[in-house]
Design a protein around this nucleic acid. Structure first.
Lengths: 222, 222
DNA sequence: ACCTGAACACCGTTCAAGT
DNA sequence: ACCTGAACACCGTTCAAGT
């Protein structure tokens, strides 16, 4: 949408985007600024977000009680994007033979998870770290997360029903799978891969390899 | 060691612990303060460490060029303790049948890794996170880490030689194993376990279960 | 109803001055 | 050689005052 500088000065409400911000959706703008800052590898500070929104240092506190609340809101937004991509990937996988094979869907899930984490490390961190804010205090984050957990739980239950799993301890498999995938994502984030001899270009291939290793480990051998 | 307040005032060097600090090994004291702060769940700040050492805010900068250097020094100390515990655990395992079975040693390694991480989460974070400082800038951390990596590498090579592994891709197994164990430790650290229905008391048992699941997945079935 | 701008208590870091 | 204490530029947060 182009700006509309030709509108009369003092335009009445209707479209409150005549001047840059000042009256725009500051909340939204602050969240976007926070995500941008993180993506740039910078520390996310309320003041810098305010600066980018061209408002005074105190203005953000009219929309968020404190810094953690801003981070939580940013995390909610990032999680929304994360989820959208995972569900899109699962949607694609559904068309193929994956519809019948729950372990292929499990694989597609893990792959989508890692691909997003590899490509959006800073946003992934905001979602998953426990440092910035109490994850449990956001109902949206809690619900979203529970739904993703339920999704993989169902895949494993289906797999078990079809006799595809060597072990009946689904909870253990699920947590091991999540630890694997979360650990891989965090190794990337925390800069561990150089010392493991995994170069930038190999990371996504290695992600796939590691997922396949895990799945072949839990699957019945036939 | 008890203090020696009976020594003459103005005691010559020899034992520079007559007065609390002020001339003691401030560097050491600051590192310990940083580790204590982390263990208490507080933010580690140079100023607070200085306060605990009863020195002025500028004093630490005579021993560390900046905050990151203090964090790196704290990480080196934590890594030393971490390594000591892992090697002790491997030493014990060596007596038993584990000496002959490289996968049992691999298991003992993973268990010791997770046990330490579960019991010292804040120190584990200082070691492993990439945020506080550039891990590669500390030769000691780099060397220590490389040695631990070489250790597990050797275990897997032995296992492969004895025909205990289903796959010949040792690098992939090694990275998957590390991702599993690192991810589990971080899930604990980042407060994920409540939402996965893993209670405080179950975490260590689950750690064991997850390691066993992984090993049974990579081992030849016989 | 929302924003400004000054203020406060923090923090990392520097630097002259002290011993 | 090492530490103090004041200073500076930041940050989160509050609050009176403006529109």
């Amino acid at each position: 949408m182009p700006a509309r500088p030709t509108s009369k000065p003092r335009a009445r409400r209707q479209k409150p985007e005549a001047r840059p911000y000042h009256h725009g959706d500051l909340r939204r703008v602050l969240i976007d600024a926070a995500l941008q800052l993180a993506a740039e590898g910078a520390e996310v500070s309320v003041r810098e977000a305010a600066r980018r929104a061209a408002v005074s240092p105190g203005a953000p506190f009219r929309h968020f009680p404190n810094r953690d609340a801003l981070m939580a809101a940013a995390a909610e937004e990032a999680q929304r994007r994360f989820r959208a991509e995972i569900e899109a990937a699962l949607g694609e996988a559904k068309g193929a033979e994956a519809a019948a094979d729950p372990l292929l869907r499990f694989r597609a899930f893990g792959l989508a998870y890692l691909r997003w984490a590899m490509r959006n490390p800073a946003h992934f961190e905001i979602i998953s770290t426990g440092r910035y804010f109490a994850h449990g205090s956001s109902p949206e984050l809690t619900r979203d997360n529970a739904e993703l957990i339920a999704l993989t739980e169902q895949m494993l239950a289906d797999a078990a029903e079809q006799g595809l799993l060597r072990s009946a301890d689904l909870k253990r498999i699920q947590i091991a799978g999540r630890a694997l995938v979360y650990g891989f994502a965090r190794m990337n984030l925390d800069g561990h891969f150089p010392r493991w001899g995994v170069g930038k270009g190999e990371v996504e291939r290695m992600a796939e390899g590691v997922i396949d290793l895990f799945i072949s480990g839990i699957a019945t051998t036939d």
